[in-house]
């Protein structure tokens, strides 16, 4: 668990008082957190705690009800989602969301939609295929016919094709076989070790905390606990509530 986080580069993303509401119901009640450059941060909590809503609000897939989000020192909570991709924020949506009737290669090419530097795109494609050799083998296969794990690989690969500075991962382990989950997390660690800043939303708290440097625990729309990931892993309350002990 070395990583290269906490290298003193300062925060890449700061959310303050972030609120999300569906109709009258508050899903996220004014939470404050930050992600430092090069760091992997885990947002853990039970089903319905507001983790996915938080991530969606950051990526502007839904409109936050209030609060501010600063990225590289700039307020971004009013930017439309497609602008965020240009700014270097890439979301891997919950449930993967690959383009089912396009091949793996076409899906990855779509990931670079916001870019026009051909050489850079070719380089990144090679890099993604290096991370996921399985995708290269099946380049011509339709994404809709892949297994859940392969689709998750593809979704992460596609997000990387936009050459993001901040990767938002929404439940990458959801619905996958345990062996696949291990593989996906290996890649997440590799990407993190290469210097990527990652905000990871995950129900599998153990795996998430083993991957991240820091963690936030969410409960009914608020952050109840935050600490170094290793400390959270040994926190009796966390162990009882989320690690099943």
């Amino acid at each position: 668990m070395s990583g290269n986080g906490n290298n003193g580069k300062g925060p890449l993303l700061i959310a303050e008082g972030l609120r999300v509401a569906y109709g009258g119901i508050q899903a996220v009640r004014g939470i404050t957190f930050h992600v430092d450059e090069g760091e992997t941060v885990a947002l853990i909590g039970a089903n319905g705690a507001g983790k996915t809503s938080t991530l969606r609000a950051l990526a502007r897939m839904l409109d936050p009800a209030g609060g501010s989000v600063r990225y590289q020192g700039r307020e971004i909570s009013a930017l439309p989602p497609h602008r965020l991709v240009h700014e270097g924020i890439a979301l891997v949506p919950e449930g993967r969301g690959v383009f089912p009737r396009l091949t793996i290669a076409e899906n990855l090419a779509m990931g670079a939609f916001s870019r026009s530097d051909k050489a850079g795109i070719a380089h990144d494609l090679d890099h993604v295929y290096g991370l996921f050799p399985r995708l290269r083998e099946r380049e011509k296969q339709l994404a809709g016919t892949l297994s859940g794990g392969e689709q998750q690989m593809l979704a992460i690969g596609r997000a990387l094709m936009s050459r993001p500075k901040l990767l938002l991962l929404d439940e990458p382990s959801m619905g996958l076989a345990p062996i696949m989950v291990q593989k996906i997390f290996e890649v997440i660690r590799t990407v993190a070790a290469e210097g990527m800043t990652i905000l990871l939303v995950e129900q599998n708290a153990k795996l998430a905390l083993e991957t991240a440097q820091r963690g936030y625990v969410m409960e009914s729309g608020g952050i109840t606990l935050t600490a170094e990931a290793a400390a959270l892993l040994h926190d009796p309350k966390v162990r009882e509530a989320y690690l099943g002990e």
């Binding site: 989602p81 949506p93 969301g97 690959v98 939609f113």
Partner: peptide, 25 residues
């Protein structure tokens, strides 16, 4: 064209299209 590919992405999955930086509106 680029627009054609954007349409293709929207047809396949609108949320994913947004997530790869397409101005879906």
């Amino acid at each position: 064209s680029r627009i054609g590919r954007a349409w293709q992405a929207i047809r396949e999955d609108e949320i994913a299209a947004k997530a790869i930086g397409i101005n879906t509106r």
